[in-house]
Design a binder for these strands. Structure first.
Length: 192
DNA sequence: CCGCGGATCTTCT
DNA sequence: GAAGATCCGCGGA
């Protein structure tokens, strides 16, 4: 399968968040290649989304969200964990999709080694801070082009199984928030 | 099994 | 000065 084209990301953020389920993140590093299938995402919008870093306009950290689509937005959370997002919508319009969980499909042992865990265990990549460790993604990857290079998202057949949606994790207004998408029943989803 | 707190960067009050 | 798109280890039940 080929890398997803930039036009895939140049759309409504919520649609991209849903459509990224089942796609595969390919990570190339000197020590080996790791790949993970996306099983959980969350959409973060621009103005009007209080939970989004872009809500109050661009800052040095969030400026990537306002840039061109099809790039990685990586930031340090709680001073400890790197979180990986895919930038959406046209340049000038803020939007990003947080990758919350992946299922290893290549290099599972390498991922488990980075995590200090066991290959095959969901603990390796069942959370946004965990999967960046498993893939060795850091703020050095902020702004990286996802259509080519060492951090790429490749196309994959449509997801089999049920796609569920619900409120994002750790944000207010839970009753009206339906911006989290995940593969129902998948063992790597971060929360039930 | 569950709840609490620590680690520690960026942004805003 | 405090909270946040998190995770882990500790103590108690």
């Amino acid at each position: 399968m080929r890398a997803l084209p930039r036009s895939f990301y140049d759309r409504d953020t919520v649609e991209v968040a849903r459509d990224l389920l089942g796609k595969v993140i390919v990570r190339r590093m000197p020590e080996g290649v790791t790949e993970g299938r996306i099983v959980e995402t969350e959409a973060y919008l621009g103005t009007g989304d209080p939970a989004s870093h872009a809500h109050r306009g661009p800052t040095p950290r969030s400026s990537t969200m306002f840039g061109p689509p099809g790039r990685a937005y990586v930031y340090l959370n709680y001073g400890m964990y790197h979180l990986l997002n895919m930038v959406t919508q046209s340049e000038g319009q803020a939007g990003a999709v947080l990758i919350r969980a992946i299922e290893p499909v290549e290099g599972a042992r390498l991922m488990a080694g980075r995590r200090g865990g066991t290959a095959g265990s969901p603990e390796v990549s069942n959370g946004p801070g965990k999967l960046t460790i498993a893939l060795s993604v850091t703020t050095a990857d902020n702004g990286a082009d996802l259509t080519r290079g060492d951090l790429v998202v490749k196309d994959a057949p449509p997801v089999r199984g049920e796609v569920a949606c619900g409120p994002r994790v750790g944000v207010e207004h839970r009753s009206t928030d339906h911006l989290r998408f995940y593969m129902a029943g998948n063992a790597y989803v971060s929360r039930k």
